[in-house]
Structure formats: structure tokens, C-alpha cells
Amino acid sequence: MHNTSSTLVLVLAVFGASLVEMVEALTLVVAAGVSRGWRSAIWGAVAAALVLGVLVVVVGVPLIRYVPIDALRVVVGALLLVLGLSWLRKAILRGSGHIALHDEDRIYAKTVAGLQEPGADSGTAPVAGPHQFDGVGFVVAFKGVFLEGTEVVLIVISLGAAQHRLGLAALAAGAAVLLVGIVGAIVARQLSEVPENLIKTAVGIMLSSFGLFWVGEGAGVNWPGGDLAIPVLVAFWIVVTIAFTAYMKTTLPTAATERSVTR
């Protein structure tokens, strides 16, 4: 039971984080594919995914083998806590209307416009023929997947190493990448209907829960109930997130106060 709860949270956290980041990466890959040709865009995405996979093995495996588990848990816990709190902060600000929601349609349109205009913005070269290799398309897709995937790699390595379940964490991330890839290939467009803020909130809650738990464990705190403290922490963060989001909604300036400020 103890192991089941922490394993479930690990899989859900890694899968959710990978899903959100890969949906964002897909937007850039589709934009590169539509504007510069699919061949180069797909090669760029695959190359980035391979580099990220190698990073997990090269960094993750030595961590598990050579770093003492308590030290690893404190460092990893701190890393997850920073990441989790910053995801929660952004989710609360977005959920309460203080900052705009992530808009895949807008990002897609902007990227396509930038890629279709030769020499515009990024100094892009003319589009290559349908069967030619297009360097710009490759680089845009590679950068999209690599930059969005870096956070996933850190989460996979952190959660996987702290629980000595690197393989399972990598598998959960791989499943999310595959799912986004298959859905993206079928619909051949960005996935703007995915409730990104909701998933990001859920992942932020899980990362913050794991982060606190591992920091405590590594430092010698005996959590009541052992691993069962993780679902309790998850429940705590759910309540905190709902309460903070509700409070922040009340602090939104109304149209009337806006006008009096600008007058």
C-alpha cells in the first residue's frame, strides 16, 4: 500500500508533466512541419527526443549508483519543491485571471507567420522543396522538443532517482510523448483543447508534495504513516491551491477601479 501510493503519484506526476510540455512542443513541431516541410520537422523532433533520452541515462544512472540516498533525496526534494511551487504559483495566477492562460493557437499562428516570411524575425532561409531537407524546420522542431523536454528530463531524473525507479519514470514520460505524438500525427495540428492549466496545477501539486516529502525524509523527519504522508500532502496542496485561487479572484481589480486609477 505504501509503495503503491508513492508509485502512483510518481507515474501521474511524470506523465502529466510530460503531457503538458509535449503539447507545447507539438505546437512548434506542427508549425515547423506546416511551414517548412514535415520531413525536417519530424527529424528535428526525433533527434531532440533521442538527446533527451541519452541525458536521462547519462545523468540519472550515475546518480542512483553513486550518490547516497539521503543526500540525493534532500537535493532532489529541494529541486522538485522549487519546480512544484513555481508551477503552482503560475497555475493559481492563471486560474484566478491575474495572468493570461497559455494560448497554443496564438503561439502556433505566431510561429507559422515567423517561419513563412523569408528573412522575417529570425532571418529564416527560403522554404526547401517537399522532399528536400530544411535546416530551419529541423532546428525549430529540435529546439521546441529539446527546450520543453528539458524540464521533463529533470522531473524524470529527480523523481526516478529519489525512488530508485528511473526506468518507471522514463516509461511514464515515454508514454506521454507517444500519446501526444500519435494524437498529433492523427489530427496534424496543435492540441489547443488540452486543459493545460488544469494538468499543470495537478502536476504542481504532485511535485510540491514529493518535494516536501523527500526533503523531510532526507533530513531525517519521520513522516507519520511513512509513504502514506504523500497522499495527505497531495490533499493539503489541493486545498491550498483552491483557497489561494479563490482568494486571488477577489483581488482582481474591477472595471470601475481600473477607470479611477487611469483617470
Partner: peptide
């Protein structure tokens, strides 16, 4: 969160 709030 308080520090990050912006005017709507």
C-alpha cells in the same frame, strides 16, 4: 502569488 499578481 501576491507578489506575482498583475492588474487585470
Amino acid at each position: 502569488v501576491l507578489r506575482g499578481r498583475r492588474r487585470a
